[in-house]
Amino acid sequence: MATKAVCVLKGDGPVQGIINFEQKESNGPVKVWGSIKGLTEGLHGFHVHEFGDNTAGCTSAGPHFNPLSRKHGGPKDEERHVGDLGNVTADKDGVADVSIEDSVISLSGDHCIIGRTLVVHEKADDLGKGGNEESTKTGNAGSRLACGVIGIAQ
Rank of each mutant, 00 (worst) to 15 (best):
E78K: 06
D77A: 08
K24P: 08
C58W: 00
D125L: 01
H44W: 02
L43V: 09
A90L: 07
I18H: 13
A96D: 05
K31T: 13
E122I: 07
S26V: 15
E25H: 09
K92G: 08
K4C: 13
K37C: 08
A56L: 11
W33V: 10
L145V: 12
D12Q: 15
V82R: 05
D125I: 00
E41L: 12
L118F: 09
V88Y: 06
I18E: 10
F65R: 01
G45D: 02
K4R: 12
G142P: 02
D126Q: 04
K76Q: 15
L43Y: 08
S108T: 12
K4H: 05
E50T: 08
G130T: 10
C7Q: 02
P14R: 09
I114D: 03
E133M: 10
V120L: 12
D93G: 15
G142V: 01
H121C: 02
E22F: 03
W33H: 10
T117R: 01
T136V: 07
A146G: 04
I36R: 01
T3E: 08
Q23E: 11
I105M: 07
P67C: 13
N66P: 03
G17S: 04
W33N: 09
C7F: 00
I152F: 04
K37Y: 05
S103G: 07
S143M: 14
S108M: 04
I113R: 02
S106L: 08
S106Q: 14
D110W: 12
A90G: 10
T89Y: 14
V88T: 05
A146M: 04
Q16K: 14
G57W: 03
P67L: 04
L107R: 01
L39F: 06
G142D: 05
I19P: 01
H111S: 09
L145H: 07
A146L: 03
L39R: 00
F21G: 03
V30W: 05
D97C: 10
E41P: 07
A96K: 03
A124I: 10
L68D: 11
N87M: 09
F51Q: 03
L145D: 08
S143H: 07
I100S: 12
D93V: 10
K31S: 13
G115V: 01
G130V: 08
H111D: 11
K31D: 15
D110Y: 05
L9Q: 07
N20G: 09
K37T: 09
D93R: 13
G42E: 08
P29E: 15
S135H: 03
G38V: 08
I100N: 14
K123S: 11
T117F: 01
E122G: 13
K92M: 11
P63D: 05
V8M: 11
I113P: 04
D102W: 07
V98E: 06
G139V: 01
I113Q: 00
F46L: 12
D91S: 09
V119L: 05
P63L: 06
L39N: 07
W33F: 11
G11D: 08
D126N: 04
V48D: 03
S99R: 14
S35C: 11
L107C: 04
V6I: 05
H81A: 02
T3D: 15
G86C: 03
T117I: 03
G86K: 01
G86M: 04
G109T: 12
K37V: 11
H111A: 14
A5W: 04
E79V: 11
P63C: 06
G34W: 00
S108G: 14
G115T: 00
A56F: 09
S35A: 14
E25L: 04
D91V: 08
G130S: 09
F65H: 08
K137I: 06
V82M: 12
E133Q: 12
I114H: 06
G83N: 01
V95P: 12
G62V: 02
H44F: 09
I36A: 11
K10P: 07
A96L: 05
V149D: 04
K4T: 07
A124N: 14
T3Y: 14
L68P: 09
N20M: 14
A2N: 13
A5P: 00
S135V: 01
V30N: 02
C147S: 03
D102M: 11
V82I: 12
D12F: 06
V120R: 02
V32F: 13
P29C: 15
T89K: 13
P75S: 10
L145P: 10
V32K: 00
L9C: 13
